[in-house]
Design a protein around this nucleic acid. Sequence first.
DNA 1: AATCATGTCAACCGCAGTGCG
DNA 2: CCGCACTGCGGTTGACATGAT
Length: 259
Amino acid sequence: MGRKTWLDDDGMKKGEWTAEEDQKLVAHIDEHGLCDWRSLPERAGLQRVGKSCRLRWLNYLRPGIRRGKFTPQEEEEIIKLHAVLGNKWAAIAKQMENRTDNDIKNHWNSCLKKRLSRNGIDPMTHKPIINNLTVTTTNEEECGSSPTTTSLTTESHFSSSPSGSVSLLNKLATGIASRQHDLDRIKNILLDRKITISDQDKEEGLRRDQEIGGGEEDDFLIWDDGEVRRYMDIDPMEYETTPYDSVLYESTQILDHLF
DNA sequence: AATCATGTCAACCGCAGTGCG
DNA sequence: CCGCACTGCGGTTGACATGAT
């Protein structure tokens, strides 16, 4: 795997490393140790930039690196560490047994993040997504501490085919995030409590009210598709493909400024 | 068997932090 | 204090592998 090799404007080789290049790099570091990545390529007889050499060494050639499949124990550890450290891959890697930050990052992005989502866990906050959708806004510094939360009542957005309030929120969020609608218009929508509730949402709301013992402070904000389209002229194809979390995140940021 | 979608992972890019003259 | 060089980090890309249709 990897990228094909090519030469950049300065005549430096880029892309996949050959076995010969690996051998040259290892031999040079064995002999001279690690010092000054910038001048290393020339001294080692490599037509590479120092940055590329460093990356190759740290992520692949360095002794003791553990490669291949992650064990369930390792995965569990990554999840735990990520809950505390956030996307600080280098910090997470330091706590792991000879895994590189790149490896951990790749595994998280390609596998663990999706797995958590499937299991109803928000991969960013590590909090369970329950019926009451918790829209969480966090920044890196706050990771691991209590995040700022804004609650919008809806069903879990992880359902395979969002419907009712979920798709509605999706549409609204998309409209806001894409700046298609001026803020006054959006504000009007949010302040208008004229609600059209689907049967599914009625049941959901009823069930929630029973669970939490009444919902006076927890009014449902639900519109149906027609209601939203009238306000926002949203193309359904567009919102269907929008990554929900990022849209929602940005939407809540904007809403924070609004109210 | 062919095509398309999704997953994997090595490597690149851009930026922030740090040290030094 | 400022600017430059260097390092390290996190996000992203791109090519191949694998699975689904």
